[in-house]
């Protein structure tokens, strides 16, 4: 059995990190009283490595390593079921967003493929203003090394006119590119 977690050091090291999560998410981690209603209703909980409730517990204790290095923050689908039922009105998905952003900044992405998906999604939007589902899926399958994932479904979709071969054109694309450029410029 591993040694006990020493909490005063955890807090001394992690307090700044917790404040950063609170700032990014607009939530107070102390609001949570660990009732577990979030986890009980979470559609993804069965596939997560730690319960959503425990993410908040890590934050309450300043345990940043535990809070960042898990699949849970990447598997949150932002379905908001937990927010709808939380007796303390904690917006847990906002906390998950904040943790993912910090994890990316620190290069600590546990679910690299989920992150890859989001990155490709935004890159596609940035490029064309609108999302091109075909290129997103192809790009994702290529880069995540599962070339033929769902390949069987493609011809039917194609024949039914559900997949565009050529990406849609919108003159709004230039404006979207500017939005991304300005956003990138203001990042620290």
């Amino acid at each position: 059995m591993s040694a006990a977690t020493e909490l005063t050091r955890a807090w001394a090291n992690g307090a700044g990190f917790v404040r950063e999560v609170e700032r990014l998410s607009g939530q107070k981690v102390a609001s949570c009283y660990q009732c577990g209603k979030c986890t009980a209703g979470c559609p993804m909980a069965a596939d997560m490595d730690v319960a959503p409730r425990q993410i908040l517990r890590f934050l309450q204790l300043g345990l940043q390593e535990e809070a960042l290095n898990n699949s849970t923050i990447w598997l949150c689908a932002s379905c908001m079921t937990c927010v709808a039922r939380c007796p303390r009105e904690v917006d847990l998905p906002r906390i998950m967003d904040a943790l993912r952003q910090i994890a990316v900044r620190r290069g600590r992405v546990k679910e690299r493929r989920v992150y890859l998906f989001h990155r490709l999604f935004l890159a596609g939007v940035r490029r064309g203003g609108r999302l091109d589902e075909l290129r997103l899926v192809l790009g994702y399958n290529l880069r995540s090394g599962q070339l033929f994932k769902d390949a069987a479904k493609a011809p039917a979709l194609f024949l039914k006119g559900k997949i565009r071969v050529l990406p849609e054109k919108t003159s709004g694309a230039a404006e979207v590119q500017q939005i991304f450029a300005r956003w990138e410029a203001r990042k620290p």
Binding site: C35, G36, K37, A40, A51, R53, P87
Partner: peptide, 24 residues
């Protein structure tokens, strides 16, 4: 805290997390 109660046949399914177990 229980998250949801819903019917399954003539039973009621009660879903909660056992927070001491750490599992739904």
């Amino acid at each position: 805290r229980v998250s949801k109660v819903y019917p399954r046949g003539d039973k009621l399914v009660v879903r909660g997390e056992d927070t001491l177990l750490g599992k739904p």
